[in-house]
Nucleic acid binder design. Structure first.
Length: 587
RNA sequence: GGGCAUGUAGCUCAGCUGGAUAGAGCGUCAGAUUCCGGUUCUGAAAGCCGAGGGUUCGAGUCCUUCCAUGCCCGCCA
């Protein structure tokens, strides 16, 4: 409907110019109708002009309608309520739009103009730690955003800002030298078993043993100085973690380019120097920091952003600033040349990013027209409304969570197969359970407004009813069933589509909104809007399918309905794909 | 103490740049079925949109003051 909306907006502008004594053009405030009975669009502009023109809003609206020429597209416009202008697209125009969509794989979504270079920074787990639900949200949401921006034609770089550097490596290396010295000499392959358990042990030593603490600090210094043995130990730890992470990314079907904190190590001194030159740097209590504007602490004084600690070490703010420079620097100068950088992290880091962005701005590292954007999300909570934990109080491991989703999906599937007495292969059960389980986890996350906390529930996400992945997947499967039974849902010839029945019209209208939804998603980065849309589309389809025969319809109606089925499947397929969810043909 | 976010039906949540009588799912209750996969569809009950004040033709949405909850707050990331 993007195209039609643009045309109608133009016609309204023209009509207003003719009808009203206005010095300059005024926005007609064209919006999608709030209710089906109001038609497709409503123009709200008349009401705001009542005061300016000193006449009743309905009269203004009527004057605009009198000059409005839209008979080629719309039924006669109606003035309603306090002064709305309601516009209803004619069925044959809708039919032509549907026809047009059938021929294009982009389903009406235009390529972005201009195309941008975009960095999406997401997922970002820490080496030697287990991925948990916080990483899940970042990974799923970040992946969706990257997919949508790529689809729009932007050049997207998906970066995994891995926590692969920093003080925690001191204790890890120290512990490694204690328990497996031979691996460091290259004599044995590293087998640390559960890396998380290893981390816990190291942390235990660090907390209890002062001698160990001191050794850990020395290890950090050695590592940062590039001592070969330390680097080797570090490399071994990273490699182990990397394998574990990759297994998760493979299951989730998420592509990421690893670019951990260590990547920016060499650039850290340069960050401090540049800030010094920009005269932003202040030494306070031995630490080198930039005092922030408009952000004050407990005592009302400006808060500092520390970029070099008293002991000379750098911290995450320094790394983030180095990353910003790298990402915003032009490709000719060895950078990424990004015009938009998106950070998908939990909302708890909002202050941190506000501070870092401010400093980057003041240092002059953000070229005009470039945008740094923190895309925050809320906590994952359990049924009790508190941060999600296992019964024993530990963090929930991501792989356990995914396992359980698939296991529950398999259980439901097997039960249903038995009820329906269907015979299928083990392979089928496996692939459906995996697809449904992953889809459920992703969709549950994405269908929630990301800014709020999100209550995790296997029962809800795997439910076959309601706004869930299984409900949407089922609609897709149903349509594939029609195709299996009735032959391929071939494109009807020209002028073969006639929209008549209310259910047909309603479904067609819904289908045509897809382009607007995607553009909105690109702007607001709120995947739940797409989910809401796909759910509504699925409901419309089920209503349509419930009330109207497709394959058994008379010939002249059949091709229209098959076309609607096909476009529904394509829209669902593309929509789910942009969410990072795979469709299946049977379930 | 300061900052940010959230508060909408019994529960989980939508509500985009302010628009017409505040929406959906689950749950509850009552129905439908010539069924192309009923994992469906129809209907009903259910609300002081946290509270007060303001802005205007019009406020769940914007401003302001409270209240409640969550997260964050100088050398961890």
């Amino acid at each position: 409907m993007l195209k039609l909306r643009g045309i109608l907006n133009q016609r309204l502008l023209e009509a207003m110019a003719k009808a009203l004594p206005l010095p300059q053009a005024v926005d007609p405030l064209l919006r999608p109708a709030t209710k089906p009975e109001f038609g497709d669009f409503q123009a709200n502009g008349a009401m705001g002009l009542a005061k300016v023109l000193d006449s009743p809003p309905r009269q203004i609206a009527q004057a605009v309608v009198d000059h409005l020429q839209v008979d080629d597209l719309c039924c006669p416009p109606q003035v309603a309520g306090p002064g709305f202008i309601n516009l209803t697209i004619r069925p044959e125009v809708l039919a032509a739009e549907v026809q047009g969509r059938l021929k294009q794989p982009r389903l009406g979504v235009p390529m972005a103009e201009p195309r941008q270079r975009v960095v999406v920074d997401f997922s970002s787990p820490n080496i030697a730690k287990e991925m948990h639900v916080g990483h899940l949200r970042s990974t799923i949401i970040g992946d969706c955003i990257a997919r949508v921006l790529s689809f729009r034609g932007h050049q997207v770089l998906r970066l995994n800002h891995l926590g692969d550097w920093g003080t925690q490596f001191g204790m890890l290396i120290a512990h490694l030298k204690n328990v497996a010295p031979q691996t460091l000499a290259g004599q044995e392959n590293l087998d640390l078993g559960d890396l998380v358990e290893f981390y816990r042990q190291a942390k235990g030593c660090f907390d209890e043993d002062e001698v160990f603490q001191e050794r850990s600090r020395r290890e950090v210094v050695q590592l940062q100085a590039g001592a070969p043995e330390s680097l080797r130990a570090w490399g071994l730890l990273c490699q182990r973690s990397r394998q574990a992470f990759q297994a998760i990314y493979d299951r989730l079907d998420v592509q990421l380019l690893e670019r951990g904190e260590s990547f920016y190590n060499g650039a850290l001194p340069g960050v401090v120097e540049a800030l010094e030159q920009a005269q932003l740097l202040v030494t306070d209590d031995g630490a080198r920091c930039v005092f922030l504007q408009g952000i004050t602490g407990k005592d009302g004084r400006p808060l500092p952003l520390i970029v070099q600690k008293r002991d000379g070490g750098y911290n995450y703010a320094t790394t983030d600033l180095a990353a910003i420079r790298q990402r915003l620097t032009s490709p000719e100068a060895g950078g990424e040349g990004a015009e938009r950088v998106i950070y998908v992290t939990d909302a708890g880091q909002s202050d941190h990013f506000a501070a870092v962005f401010q400093v980057a701005q003041r240092a002059g590292w953000v070229p005009p027209g470039c945008r740094l954007q923190h895309v925050p999300f809320g906590l994952v909570q359990g049924a009790d409304g508190k941060k999600l934990k296992t019964r024993s109080g530990a963090t929930v491991r991501l792989r356990d969570l995914l396992d359980e989703a698939v296991e529950r999906a398999r259980h439901d599937l097997v039960e249903r197969l038995a009820q329906e007495q269907r015979q299928v292969t083990g392979e089928f059960i496996e692939s459906v359970a995996t697809a449904v389980g992953m889809a459920a986890v992703k969709y549950a996350d994405l269908s929630q407004n990301r800014t709020t906390n999100y209550q995790f529930s296997f029962d809800r996400m795997l439910s076959l009813q309601g706004n869930t992945a299984p409900y949407l997947l089922y609609v897709y499967v149903r349509i594939q069933g029609i195709a299996r039974k009735g032959g391929p849902l071939e494109t009807p010839g020209p002028a073969a589509i006639y929209l008549n029945d209310p259910q047909e019209l309603h479904l067609a209208r819904q289908l045509l909104h897809f382009d607007e939804v995607i553009l909105e998603l690109e702007k607001d980065l709120l995947p739940n809007r797409l989910c809401t849309y796909l759910f509504g589309l699925s409901q419309s389809f089920n209503r349509f399918y419930d009330q109207l025969p497709v394959l058994k319809a008379p010939t002249q109606l059949r091709s229209t309905r098959i076309a609607l089925c096909r476009l529904t499947a394509e829209t669902l397929g593309l929509g789910l794909d942009l969410l990072g969810i795979k469709t299946i043909d049977r379930m």
